[in-house]
Amino acid sequence: MNWDVIFSVSLESLIGLSTIVYALAAIGLNVHFGYTGLLNFGQSAFLGVAAYGMAITVTTFGQPFWLGILVGLGGVVVLALLLGIPTLRLRADYLAIVTIAAAEIVRLLFRSVTLSEWTGGSDGLQQFSQSFYDMNPYSSPIETTLISFSTRELWVLTVGWVLVAIALLIVWLLMRSPWGRVIKAIREDEDAVRSLGKNVFSYKIQALILGGVLGSLGGFVFALGLAAIQPDTYGTEFTFYMYTIVILGGAARVFGPVVGSMIFWFLLTFINALLPSLISVGAIPSSIMTTNQAGAVGYILVGIGLMLLLIFRPQGIFGDKKEVMLDAR
């Protein structure tokens, strides 16, 4: 048993690329779902549009990196307006239907053969991250017995956690302001908010854009961290993991998404490292499980764990049980 390997990959995942990407995506989703009550089931599309906006600008059209970032952000705002303007005047569930469909449309467009000249089709795009790594100030990697990161990884993690900190600061500032009060009130009952003279539609659009932009930061980090993008990354299960993380951490809590993401990825990595090595040393006989099945079993175990958590702690890690129980009325 390689306990040191199991522990080091688990520890690395605690602050690793996936944790950052999902934390940023979930911070955005938390603005939608947790604070505003918008059922956005297409958060993956916001990350996808940001990543593709950047990659197409840089790789396909040979434009500068920063212009790519701007194009990505612009694309996210446009997507939010496209989704929001027709649906936000309607009941909440319409947004859910439209966003889940839109996310699939976006993914299928990215991988369509017709557009492959620009998007690279199902292979995606590469070679757009050189300018980003050129800015890397780290010259030596970290190599300890517990964790090790290359200089490239260190640079991605640094930028990623700075972005997480900025996103958290923005959410924290907004949600303690009168703006955040209107947003939370809309979650509770938008007609009441309307009757008090607030333009509910405008606030919902603002929240949709804000959550989309914060989530899209995760899309940039993801693309740059892997130095490649692929359309099928941005499927619906991407969004469902984000929801899991938001609820796990505690909806409408500033730090919920970050802690949720850390726990989710730590558990998943730990189990996915533990099971194969248990099988290889014979602790689990191959009649029960082979190494090929270990990955799927890992997800099953994490799923069971999350179910138990939500049964016994429905408010998530940071939530207030009293508050969640009010919802039942």
Binding site: R181, K184, A185, E188, V193, L196, E323
Partner: peptide, 17 residues
């Protein structure tokens, strides 16, 4: 239409134009 998961005082503050 009370805003259930807001405090009473926040319900009130929301009303100010």
């Amino acid at each position: 239409k009370s805003l259930n998961r807001l405090s009473v005082i926040d319900n009130m503050r929301l009303g100010a134009t």
